[in-house]
Amino acid sequence: MIFLKLFFEFFKVGLFAVGGGMATFPFLSELGPRTGWFTQNQLADMVAVSESTPGPIGVNMASYVGFTTAGVPGAAAATLGLITPSVIIILLVARMLAAFRDSKLVKDIFYGLRPASTGLIAAAGISVVLLALLDRAAYASSGRLLDLFQWKGFLLAAALLYFTRWCKPTKELHPVAFIAFAAAAGILFRFAGA
């Protein structure tokens, strides 16, 4: 039963992904290869679409994965799975709002969870970098190290790093602007060689 499985997998993500936004990403990066529902390349595309459309990123990612796996009902099943633990937990916590907010145990647990979430996202990010910037297929067939490193991708990454981190006028722009810029560069310089 694909819908139940989608619901259950995203229930787990909703229960364990801490810190909002990108926190769901490492879970999906593990989910794809395990279930065969989507590839890492598809996941990277989903991140881009989720960042460029309205709505919470975690919810957008769940809708996208669900739709890719099992159409519109799949999108609904995955999204409902993601939000169900939140609703249950908040309904429980709301009764003892102050006690929860001031609890030392909760603070201590989250003191450990936050750096772990950062580490998980970094690890999953490295797997995307390996896919986007290294062409292992070309290297395997030609044996030349120059074919392994996609120099166009490195140049674009350097430019984007500059525009998102150090260049004052563009730094505050919404991610969708950088995604559009990268898409234009991809088409102009034939990034996929197509």
Partner: peptide, 23 residues
């Protein structure tokens, strides 16, 4: 295809920036 190959590079940078912020 070409557009998404470019976008994937951008996703790397966005994830890197998110990690720096969370860090």
């Amino acid at each position: 295809k070409n557009a998404f190959a470019g976008i994937r590079v951008c996703v790397c940078v966005l994830i890197f920036n998110a990690v720096c912020r969370l860090w």
